[in-house]
Computed example of a mutant assay.
Amino acid sequence: MSTTQSERLRGLLEPLVSAKDLDLEEIEVSRAGRRRVLRVIVDSEDGVELDTCAELSRTISETLDETDAMGDDEYVLEVSSPGADRPLTEHRHYVRAIGRLVKLSLHTGEPADELVVRILAVDDEGIDLEVPGVKGRRPTSRRVVFDEIAKARVEIEFNRKDKKEEEA
């Protein structure tokens, strides 16, 4: 997707997404046979419900039909949330992952610098982590600044308590 088209789509879609109290995470245009696929990835502090994606999809579709932002070619519109395997790249991603288990790769490139840790707190400089104890040892605390992080991704936990359950 050309930068101009990307900027134009972002300018057109960002207000629609913000109106639903969501963050526009990504816009991607790709080819699928003769058609193009426009993927719009949105997120929020509380996640994104399917009904919200459907409503937003209708709103975006109507807006795109009124403009020539996608040109005359056929396209398929997909509106979704980022999914569990999305990398953590923005400060807000780390804030949303507080309490979650994450896999961090640090810039040193050593295998020992790949950690599976729980995010305890996030500020402007970095993150406070809980490193799980090994072989019956207690967990320890660690601080990592954002500049040290090469990659970060949330790990799936099947037995994790949901925030809503903890509040109840």
Rank of each mutant, 00 (worst) to 15 (best):
T59V: 14
R36M: 13
T4D: 10
L22Q: 01
L120Y: 02
Y94Q: 00
S81H: 05
V116E: 07
T89A: 14
E14C: 03
R137P: 03
E157R: 01
E25V: 15
T52Q: 10
I98Q: 13
K151I: 03
A19K: 13
L38R: 00
F158S: 10
G47I: 10
A97N: 00
D147N: 13
R142W: 02
E62F: 06
L88H: 04
D128Q: 12
R10Q: 15
N159S: 08
G126D: 11
S105G: 09
K135C: 15
L120H: 10
E55M: 11
D147Q: 12
E66S: 15
D85T: 00
V145E: 12
L120E: 13
I119M: 03
A54I: 13
S105N: 05
I149N: 11
A54C: 02
A97R: 00
D51H: 11
H91I: 08
V154L: 07
V48W: 03
V116S: 05
T140R: 10
V79A: 03
K135A: 15
G126K: 11
E14Q: 14
D124H: 15
V42S: 04
E155R: 04
E25L: 14
L88N: 04
A97P: 01
L12R: 11
R143T: 07
R8I: 01
P139A: 14
S105D: 13
A150S: 13
A150Y: 11
V134C: 13
V131I: 13
L77T: 03
V79T: 04
I60R: 02
I127D: 05
G33V: 05
S18A: 15
E25G: 12
R34G: 12
E45L: 00
L106R: 06
T63Q: 14
S57L: 06
E26T: 00
I41E: 05
E78G: 06
R34S: 08
V117Y: 10
I27Y: 04
D73F: 13
S6E: 15
V95M: 05
G109D: 14
E28M: 09
L129D: 09
H93S: 04
T52Y: 03
D113H: 11
T89R: 13
R153Q: 10
A121L: 12
E78Q: 04
S30D: 11
R35S: 15
